[in-house]
């Protein structure tokens, strides 16, 4: 994919695989409703950084950004209890980096990808399958299915977007796995 910059490749390889951890951290700090938004904001900060090569521990770095953004938001919010803010500042930001095994396992969840693909609208699934599993060129798919190239594009775009949203939903579920703050505290935030 020549349309990716160095920083994009780095971001995809080093930052995105830990999405569930960022979301979990964000949800515990700001509540589940704001978690996605907070993580997206953190991503934008990380991807907007001028010198990503200097970031030695991307996962920990991103978690720290999430943490700081959460603090900023909480300071702006009116209803936060003082002791909560205090406990947040004491929270250990450092995060034991997951081993490469967990990352790789998370990234190669082929079975899950397959399940997601099976839930797509039939034509979306068919086109994505032809493109990614059978490796057919977009133009060849258009010809085989007697549809226009732009329709092929639309199916691919729609299918991809649906799969990504479903993967995000998976991450939201995964956050149960690593509580940082006792649940009753984070509930007080919302």
């Amino acid at each position: 994919m020549s349309w990716l910059r160095d920083i994009d490749r780095w971001f995809m390889a080093e930052v995105l695989p830990h999405a569930a951890a960022y979301r979990a951290r964000a949800a515990h700090l700001c509540g589940a409703d704001e978690a996605d938004d907070l993580v997206q904001e953190a991503y934008a900060r990380v991807l907007g950084s001028q010198n990503h090569q200097a970031i030695l521990a991307p996962r920990a770095f991103t978690l720290t950004v999430v943490h700081h953004l959460a603090l900023e938001r909480l300071r702006r919010a009116q209803v936060v209890r003082i002791e909560l803010l205090a406990s947040m500042q004491l929270l250990e930001v450092a995060d034991s980096a997951p081993d490469a095994f967990a990352v790789a396992a998370g990234r190669s969840e082929l079975r899950r990808l397959e399940q997601l693909m099976a839930t797509l609208p039939p034509q979306c699934a068919r086109v994505l399958h032809m493109r990614k599993v059978q490796g057919m060129a977009p133009a060849a798919i258009a010809e085989a299915l007697s549809i226009s190239l732009s329709t092929v594009e639309k199916h691919i775009a729609k299918g991809l977007a649906l799969m990504i949203k479903a993967r995000r939903a998976d991450e939201a579920q995964a956050e149960e796995a690593c509580p940082v703050v006792p649940p009753h505290r984070s509930r007080a935030l919302t």
Partner: peptide, 15 residues
């Protein structure tokens, strides 16, 4: 875009 490209790349594994 990075998120989309990431899933796009992951789908290659199916092939």
């Amino acid at each position: 875009f990075a998120e989309v490209a990431s899933t796009w790349r992951d789908l290659d594994a199916l092939r």
